[in-house]
Write a protein that binds this DNA or RNA. Structure first.
Lengths: 270, 270
DNA sequence: ATGGCATTATAACATATGATTGGTCCCGTG
DNA sequence: CACGGGACCAATCATATGTTATAATGCCAT
């Protein structure tokens, strides 16, 4: 799952190092809220969090964690790998968002009970399972941790909103660029990006599902990115030629990720 | 704010009546989760909820409740009127979602602290203000109500996801139809829809912002809906000629609203 | 009532994207 | 090694949408 080219850590260098020691101490949940509000977790809460994971599993490529309408009694922490949230309509699949390690991918199914969408692996994934009774305990007894859980699901909503805006604003080539920029940034936040891009099991067809285009047109768009020296894509190897160019082309402003941008809560905490 | 044509209540008739008596008893929060999980609130919780509202205000058309980046210390219950969540980019405004009475429009800013988007009135609105200290109390002392609060913010995310999918899937005429269908349905859930449509302060330009199109094209699209006998729009009066036609044209499936569809929690509660 | 302004309407042309088709490259399997 | 399938690439034509321009309508303040 992603042979590393180089360690990135341009901007989040210190956190990347922090994250790696966190991962030793908390192998399953060490990346949760990393680059966001992890610093707002007390040592005690980190221990509590890690203890919530009752079982770790390896899931194969394409595995469906949850299908729309399923009732579930546990939630899932993504430890390693990539996942996609999808919706089916007509005979086609649409991607609504994706996940990187550290994401509590279906925490919301605790309060939603039945999910409105599917969650599936892209490539092999390692996950940690958290029984809902344990989350209910947290709700009762650890209001601060509960609030951070809430926060983490609201992060999804903020990312949804940004994507809605981008879908309304951008043509397909720029949408692709935006996806590249966001994945790169989010991987970077958890210390998994390379200096010149990232590796992903996503195919051009997946990208098409994610931005509501045809694979043919996605291919055109990628060709365009390549020709204009912005980024290259080849069998999951995404190489960013020029970060500024990419981000300005895609009109990517990372604030909405609640990392270190204008909306960050790093100073304040929750 | 919306002279009523007729009472709708085709499907939610009983709830509409229930809602009106709820509104007598709980004039500010009586529509919260109406048509969704309101029945899961105990009488005690309803009283608690109503008591959270510290002040009621009337806001003028176009008023900005919150701007992106603002820090806020209270959240807002929409009692009467319509609101839009928007994002600005370039020199244009994009709508990401809208709100109807009963929506706790910015509950999420409790856990997000700074919002990533703006919230503004479309037409005059009546709102109830809830201090964040009170919400923190709820988090500490009323886990079930806290969970319902969480649920209500997750509802937003579910609606975001559906809209993402629709943006990826639908052309502009169908997007407009989908907006009509959703607004109609949501108004109906709180007893505010007419049998043959609804009134709204939205203009064609607003609709354009909401579906990422130009006002000119929105106008074309509305002309198309009119010509094919699906719906009519004139200065905020939306008349639905044929519900089935509208919903099948827009591919509208109301499950994602967590009302009485396949994903409903009405039997189970939370 | 009258002028101004927001809202809605229509037309002609340019561009982005979809649909269809076919081709190439790479990798795992027999 | 031959083969097949998945991923990627490319050209053509049809359609949806943007752009620009212009105008009709209804509302409101003076």
């Amino acid at each position: 799952m992603g042979k590393k080219r180089r360690q990135f850590g341009l901007r989040y260098g210190s956190e990347a190092i922090a994250a790696s020691t966190e991962l030793e101490r908390f192998p399953n949940t060490g990346l949760f809220l990393e680059g966001r509000l992890r610093h707002d977790l007390s040592q005690e809460e980190k221990v509590e969090l890690e203890s919530l994971v009752s079982r770790v599993e390896i899931l194969p490529d394409g595995h469906r964690l949850i299908s729309r309408g399923d009732i579930c009694d546990h939630s899932t922490m993504l430890i390693d790998g990539f996942m996609l949230r999808t919706l089916d309509s007509g005979d086609r699949r649409y991607g609504v968002s994706f996940h990187v390690p550290g994401d509590f991918v279906d925490l919301h199914c605790f309060a939603l009970k039945r999910l409105d969408h599917n969650i599936e692996c892209v490539g092999q994934a390692k996950v940690g399972l958290v029984p809902h009774e344990r989350i209910a305990e947290v709700m009762k007894e650890k209001p601060h941790l509960a609030r951070l859980f809430w926060f983490s699901t609201l992060l999804d909503a903020a990312m949804h909103r940004e994507w809605i805006m981008k879908l309304e604003q951008l043509k397909v080539p720029q949408r692709i660029a935006h996806i590249f920029a966001e994945v790169w940034c989010r991987l970077d936040m958890v210390g998994l990006a390379f200096e010149d891009g990232f590796d992903t099991p996503l195919t051009q067809a997946d990208l098409a599902d994610m931005c509501g285009a045809t694979p043919i047109h996605v291919n055109r768009a990628i060709g365009e990115l390549r020709k204009s020296g912005i980024a290259d894509f080849n069998r999951g190897e995404v190489r960013i030629c020029n970060r500024e160019k990419l981000e300005s082309f895609a009109d990517f402003e990372k604030d909405y990720l609640y990392g270190d941008g204008a909306l960050s809560l790093r100073q304040d905490g929750l």
